[in-house]
């Protein structure tokens, strides 16, 4: 034996708060500091929830009730977790189990397979092949379990008996994602950049919008300063200031602007934009201001005297 195999698939370091996996513990700790131990108010990063709740109480005079960005049930502030330290034992086991289920120790099995395969008699092989062909044609909805000798995965596919060594892939059970998806509620989640800066204020400027408007043509010495008329409608200059998409900032803003039409339905204006449960706008009527609504009420309505 040349190499010693790993006894079982070792799970990567993972974050207890959001069930996300990391290649290495250093990254995990950075993630936890940035995601879960960061003060939502002032973005100060702490090392543990304890530190965060003390900071919250002392600096902001409020009690921290949940860990930011944590999945449900994992947002307690009572457990001190740093990297992989402090993770409750049962969760560690559960995660390990989940990990093993999602990534069964395939290589090992397949290694064993050849040996077993060779014990199949030609008859059995033929039978399996026939069954497989039937299955492929869609006649047999579910293949019956394979008889006596332990059914190697490869057999379903009528792989030539000697060596299903080639691609071990096809023999695997239906594809499963390598880790369970982090139970909803984490849209910007593990993949892809969140569409909006997840950080409060000082995050990277999320949109440099409205950046480069080219100067309106007739600035300063415009045509008619004293022209007291509504004919000086802003439309022409508005139109003329649109075309040259001068800077990148401008084009970025333009595209982001295009994403939302002027009056998005109040229900789901930007689906994955905001945080987990989707905060609700207290006032979401984009077309009319609160003052207009209020002013239309009988007690405020203006009745012209003349």
């Amino acid at each position: 034996m040349a190499k010693k195999k790993k006894k079982q698939p070792q799970s990567k370091p993972w974050c207890w708060y959001c069930e996300r996996e990391f290649d290495d513990e250093k990254v995990l700790i950075t993630h936890q500091r940035a995601k879960h131990f960061k003060c939502p108010q002032c973005n100060k990063k702490m090392n543990t929830t304890g530190g965060l709740s003390i900071h919250y109480a002392q600096v902001h005079k409020e009690t921290l009730r949940s860990v930011p960005n944590a999945i449900e049930g994992r947002d307690t502030v009572d457990i001190e977790i740093f990297g992989m330290e402090g993770v409750p034992h049962e969760d560690l086991i559960a995660h390990q189990a989940g990990y093993s289920a999602a990534n069964p120790p395939m290589p090992k099995r397949i290694r064993i397979d050849p040996g077993i395969n060779q014990e199949l008699t030609p008859e059995q092989l033929k039978e399996q092949l026939a069954r497989h062909q039937a299955y492929v044609k869609g006649q047999a909805p579910a293949p019956a379990p394979v008889p006596p000798p332990p059914a190697p995965y490869g057999a379903y596919y009528g792989a030539p008996p000697p060596m299903p060594m080639g691609p071990p892939g096809p023999g695997m059970p239906p594809y499963q994602p390598p880790y369970h998806s982090p139970m909803g509620g984490y849209p910007g989640g593990p993949m892809g950049p969140p569409p909006h800066s997840p950080y409060g204020y000082p995050g990277a400027p999320p949109m440099h919008a409205g950046g480069g408007y080219p100067p309106a043509p007739g600035l300063g010495s415009g045509p008619s300063t004293a022209a007291v008329s509504a004919t000086a409608s802003p439309t022409p200059s508005a139109a003329s200031s649109m075309p040259p998409p001068s800077t990148t900032a401008a084009s970025v803003s333009a595209s982001s602007e295009h994403a939302t039409p002027t009056l998005p339905p109040p229900s789901a204006p930007r689906p994955p934009a905001v945080t987990s449960v989707g905060p609700v706008l207290v006032y979401d009527d984009n077309a009319v201001s609160v003052e207009e609504k209020r002013a239309s009420l009988p007690q405020y309505r203006y009745i012209e005297s003349n």
Binding site: M207, A209, G210, Y213, P215, A216, G218, L219, G220, S221, G222, P223, S224, T225, A227, V228, A232, P234, S237, A238, S241, S253, E257, T260, P264, P269, R270
Partner: peptide, 15 residues
């Protein structure tokens, strides 16, 4: 200095 013609007419960067 030119109060009847907008110097710039634009859309709010906020949605």
């Amino acid at each position: 200095n030119n109060p009847t013609t907008p110097f710039k007419s634009t859309q709010s960067p906020l949605k």
